[in-house]
Design a protein around this nucleic acid. Structure first.
Lengths: 340, 340
DNA sequence: CTGAAAGCGCTAACAT
DNA sequence: ATGTTAGCGCTTTCAG
């Protein structure tokens, strides 16, 4: 049985005995059509199982395709996976399909993905910018009407909308929580590479909190890692310092996982306080329960999609930055005090 | 500044002073071309930043587009997020772009997404089947050469490739672990809806292990939930039974999160053993460390992509089922014994 | 080795 | 209210 060709507009037209254009008109509610032809067309469409080919349409119209391009560093990270899910959820109602690529935080991979998305004439482009990536090349596309929204981090070299968590304020609040509980030496466990925007901002929040408390910034208390295993090692190194920190601030969910694991491994020590940026599903179940500065990745994805769709609908206002608040969730791990 | 139109084949041709077809030939290594024209074309392509429009190509060729359709229940679940990342990683080398949609385990949403993907003429279709979905309608597409691969669960009504973890064997091994440590009343915490294939298979593994140990199957020991919060409640209910279980088997990462949370809440009781299907990043950091039947979502995504690509390359062998082994990771929580 | 013409499925522009 | 023609960007087909 040869697989019969997918029906086309012409097939439907032939079936009904009208022109292709008439079918097109009915399907796109473009121009008038008599109720009767309308009904016959729709019935034929249903009968044949006709589905318009969106790519042929896109080629002809010249306008954007019904797709949304999204670049994230790693879909396996629940933060970005949730962002992606929320974006898809938010655009599906508009009949848009999600194109997703992962950059692994590599600017060249990001660039290649964006290039692919542009070639595909995506309706909107959502990008979690890789460290070091320059986005000036997107200016013409943006000027040409392509909504570009940066997620989680601002883009570089391009005035475009950006939706991101309040990294600095959140870190500040988390570290202030530790300070309020008497800690004076607080380690910072950041992501890598060090120039990663989220790391820098969260580190800045950390430093600001220290400064406000009249404490010096000690570089020795800052360590970085990109995997949970490495973060555990980094936490271990910090705690092995001659004058070790009495508390740790983990700069993201991966660092938090590493830190929690390291503390658990070292005899489940409870003499080191911990606050994490990003909440973890098991935060409450940990011992001690993990205090976290929770982001809202679904809200970030939604806001980014909505911002982009508003642009698509003609919003020509200035590029804006949409902050998505964090929320400190005190559970105990931030209130520990060592014997010091 | 009006955004200049994206260059087309014709633009490149004009620039070089050859025909569009010649440019096409060079770019697709189709037919011969003199080294000289070749060089001039490539230089013009680079100069103009020409990128072929894959949709125009797809329309003309009639064949599949350079996209891969993937339907998952929830990209925010790290299991599926990791699967998606691995799929994208595996197909990017072939110049394929990932289209991803989330079904929320709703067969109608799944169907709509697949319909969209088919209309877009994806090169391959990867689907995590929703409970209750029927896939017979895909037969013609598969017969027409579209590789269809089911992920995590088998499809229904269609003989297609399937790549999935060894749910039954894994659950069997996990429950056997509990039995080996003397447990005779083991609760099962499953996903919802109850007809969910993964739940059924894992429950079957649980039952088989009980049977082998000469133990009866007690329905009262089975509870189900689809969110961590509900799973915590379900665990609570099981442990509140008149003759409560001394151990729990959590049927997936969400149930595991709920179970762990509930045990932590109940005074961090250590008298209930726990084994989880699916590993958790914090498993080692929990107290007690969580024993898990680890799946390998990245391997599942890779294998699915590779199977599909092999089909695309002409593999016409029978539909096969590719099992991806689980691995029991004993960490302690499965070896606990209560006072009983 | 290269080009001209036709056509993929669809719709804009102009008929009627 | 409907049909015709032309053409989107690309590739197939057939000539050179």
């Amino acid at each position: 049985m040869a697989a019969s060709r997918r029906p086309t507009l012409a097939d439907v037209a032939r079936e009904v005995g009208v022109s292709a254009k008439t079918v097109s008109r009915v399907l796109n509610a473009d121009g008038p059509s008599s109720p009767e032809t309308r009904a016959r067309v729709l019935s034929a469409v249903a009968r044949l199982g006709f589905q318009p080919n969106p790519m042929a349409r896109s080629v002809r119209v010249g306008g954007p395709d019904t797709t949304v391009g999204l670049v994230v560093p790693d879909p396996g990270n629940p933060f970005f996976g949730t962002v992606a899910g929320a974006v898809e959820e938010a655009v599906r109602g508009r009949g848009l399909t999600l194109l997703m690529g992962s950059s692994a935080d590599d600017p060249e991979r990001e660039r290649a993905l964006v290039g692919t998305f542009l070639a595909r004439r995506v309706s909107v482009l959502l990008v979690v910018p890789s460290p070091g990536a320059d986005h000036a090349y997107l200016a013409r596309h943006r000027a040409g009407g392509l909504p570009v929204v940066f997620l989680d981090r601002p883009g570089s070299g391009l005035a475009a909308d950006a939706v991101a968590g309040t990294h600095r304020a959140g870190a500040h609040e988390g570290v202030a929580h530790l300070l309020a509980h008497g800690h004076r030496r607080i380690g910072f466990l950041g992501d890598l590479p060090v120039r990663l925007h989220t790391r820098r901002e969260r580190l800045a929040g950390y430093r600001a909190a220290l400064t406000e408390a009249g404490l010096p910034y000690d570089r020795a208390l800052v360590a970085n890692a990109h995997t949970a295993a490495d973060a555990a090692g980094a936490a271990r190194a910090l705690l092995a310092l001659p004058d070790p920190p009495t508390a740790l601030f983990a700069g993201n969910n991966v660092a938090a996982t590493g830190a929690v694991t390291e503390l658990a491994r070292s005899g489940r020590r409870r003499d080191v306080a911990l606050v994490a940026f990003d909440d973890l599903p098991l935060a409450e179940a940990l011992d001690p329960p993990l205090t976290a500065v929770a982001q809202d990745p679904a809200a970030i994805g939604r806001a980014a999609a909505e911002t982009a769709l508003a642009r698509l609908d003609g919003d020509r206002s200035r590029a804006r930055s949409v902050p998505v608040s964090t929320r400190l969730v005190p559970r105990g791990s931030g209130e520990l005090r060592g014997p010091g």
